[in-house]
């Protein structure tokens, strides 16, 4: 837990959380808990593994709610409400989305494969969600220099690589490096121009292979999509793409995988509607994949 590594343990946010776990020999640890705003533990609500037991979880939550209602106000609430001064600051607070960044919602889901079990998050019942960002200096790679119907451009750099580097083409996450992209053949072609709206068709074929201590996986697949670039405002105003490919984990890891090494995976990329909490979270790889320098140099 990041909390355990925080150097701001004197802040009330940390102290409240430490209080929740004061009787737990593991200290602050992962799980699903019901607590009071004053920092008192009411119950642990994660039940069932690998398949959660929602009936048991609901029962525990009901009991926690009853316990809460029976507590005097002085126990369930803080006498002095939290203020911003009590908040722990995190490195990610410094990370932000540059102006006019193409903000995509990524959804990915694997197809059925031999021997699959819900222990393994590659199971088709599970989806993956993330954000994919391209700042203006990156998404311009999709736009041919001369805006004329039929013109095309070979796309290179982050606009081509990031789909692989951020593991958007596979379930779960892998440690990918640019050198692992053996083929990244991406082309963007102008199909139509209406005023300042430049319609693009984007196609790519990827072959990736890693052979490191952390990643022995491989991938082969394609990307196909449509996008609209508005030359008057230098922005991408539409984007709709999918990837379809074959992911091989390379080595089955006992605490991650069940069944075959190989799976077909579908991914979709569309303008982020920013409708819920997932949509508003930073890209998962904001630190290692993007970095603070990235957002400071649009």
């Amino acid at each position: 837990m990041d909390y355990n590594n925080s150097d701001q343990k004197s802040k009330r946010e940390f102290q409240l959380l430490a209080n929740v776990f004061r009787n737990d020999p593991n200290g602050i640890h992962q799980g699903i808990f019901v607590v009071t705003p004053s920092g008192r533990w009411l119950t642990t609500a994660n039940t069932g593994w690998p398949d959660p037991d929602p009936v048991a979880a609901l029962e525990r939550m009901k009991q926690a709610l009853a316990k809460y209602k029976a507590m005097p106000k002085s126990e369930r609430l803080l006498s002095q409400p939290l203020t911003d001064a009590d908040r722990i600051t995190w490195e990610e607070d410094k990370f932000f989305k540059p102006e006019r960044t193409l903000d995509l919602r990524v959804v990915k889901r694997g197809y059925a494969y031999p021997g699959m079990e819900t222990f393994d998050e590659r199971h088709p019942k599970f989806f993956g969600i993330d954000r994919l960002w391209f700042k203006p200096s990156e998404f311009r790679a999709y736009v041919p220099r001369e805006l004329k119907v039929g013109n095309s451009i070979k796309v290179s750099g982050p606009a081509m690589e990031r789909y692989i580097l951020m593991s958007h083409m596979m379930k779960a996450q892998g440690a990918w490096d640019v050198s692992h992209i053996k083929t990244g053949d991406m082309t963007s072609r102008i199909t139509r121009i209406e005023g300042s709206q430049v319609h693009l068709e984007i196609r790519a074929h990827y072959i990736a292979k890693a052979n490191t201590q952390w990643n022995k996986a491989s991938y082969e697949g394609d990307l196909l999509g449509r996008a609209v670039y508005d030359s008057a405002i230098d922005s991408m105003t539409n984007f709709d793409a999918v990837m379809l490919g074959t992911h091989d984990v390379g080595v089955l890891v006992s605490n991650l995988h069940k069944g075959d090494r190989v799976q077909r995976v579908a991914s979709s990329f569309s303008l982020n509607p920013l409708t819920d909490a997932d949509d508003r979270m930073l890209p998962q790889q904001w630190y290692w994949g993007y970095g603070l320098r990235w957002c400071r140099t649009p």
Binding site: M1, V20, I28, H29, Q30, G31, I32, F33, V34, V35, T36, P37, S38, L42, A45, M61, A64, L65, Y68, K73, R76, L77, L78, P81, L82, E121, G128, I129, D130, S167, A172, Q173, L256, D278, M281, Q284
Partner: peptide
């Protein structure tokens, strides 16, 4: 939770809830 006087579900994890 303090504002509304209601208990809070905390989902704590290593990493990110959207991935491994």
């Amino acid at each position: 939770g303090q504002e509304l006087d209601k208990p809070v579900i905390l989902w704590l994890y290593f990493g990110d809830p959207r991935g491994a």
